[in-house]
Amino acid sequence: MEFLWAFLVGGAICLIGQVLLDAAKLTPVQMLVVMAIVGIVLDGFHLYEHLVELAGAGATVPLTGFGYSLVHGAMEEGAKGLFKITDGVFEIASTTIVFSILFSVAAALFFKPRGSTG
């Protein structure tokens, strides 16, 4: 049952992102920012935690999950002290950030961009 919920919630989040791209005519970068902010706002109101409990990876893997992980860590560490907030931001989201950088470097090394000469 948890796989079904992960598929349905993750699919719904991706559907919303696709609607933003097609109907709202947002660029991919604008859609990324909007989806991350939605995750941030939902976690700020403690609503995204319910999605994570229900859907697991279906809620944490899409772009909204990245915003959630940034803010959730900051809120947890912020409760311990004001200067701990920056530690919390990178505690949960560090894996996502590191792998994003590594895969971007690998893609840049192995693939040639379109329109390049040489």
Score class of each variant (00 low, 15 high):
residue 39 G to F: 10
residue 25 K to S: 13
residue 95 T to E: 08
residue 35 M to H: 05
residue 14 C to L: 15
residue 101 I to C: 01
residue 71 V to G: 01
residue 57 A to C: 11
residue 26 L to I: 05
residue 16 I to E: 00
residue 70 L to G: 09
residue 28 P to H: 06
residue 43 D to I: 03
residue 64 T to A: 15
residue 61 V to Y: 12
residue 94 S to I: 11
residue 28 P to C: 09
residue 22 D to W: 08
residue 53 E to W: 02
residue 24 A to Y: 09
residue 107 A to R: 05
residue 51 L to T: 02
residue 70 L to E: 07
residue 81 G to Y: 08
residue 51 L to Y: 04
residue 38 V to Y: 06
residue 74 A to D: 08
residue 93 A to R: 01
residue 16 I to F: 15
residue 84 K to H: 12
residue 77 E to F: 15
residue 5 W to V: 02
residue 22 D to N: 14
residue 40 I to R: 01
residue 115 G to A: 07
residue 77 E to N: 12
residue 38 V to R: 00
residue 81 G to V: 03
residue 10 G to F: 12
residue 104 S to A: 15
residue 23 A to L: 14
residue 34 V to M: 10
residue 59 A to S: 12
residue 30 Q to W: 03
residue 31 M to N: 09
residue 23 A to M: 07
residue 58 G to F: 05
residue 55 A to P: 05
residue 98 V to E: 05
residue 34 V to W: 01
residue 51 L to R: 00
residue 41 V to S: 02
residue 76 E to W: 07
residue 49 E to H: 14
residue 8 L to Q: 10
residue 96 T to K: 03
residue 65 G to V: 02
residue 76 E to H: 11
residue 4 L to M: 13
residue 80 K to E: 14
residue 85 I to E: 02
residue 98 V to M: 06
residue 84 K to W: 11
residue 100 S to P: 00
residue 52 V to P: 01
residue 110 F to M: 14
residue 26 L to A: 13
residue 92 I to D: 04
residue 32 L to T: 09
residue 75 M to I: 15
residue 25 K to N: 14
residue 92 I to C: 03
residue 114 R to K: 13
residue 88 G to K: 00
residue 46 H to L: 08
residue 47 L to W: 11
residue 73 G to Q: 06
residue 69 S to W: 01
residue 95 T to V: 15
residue 95 T to Q: 11
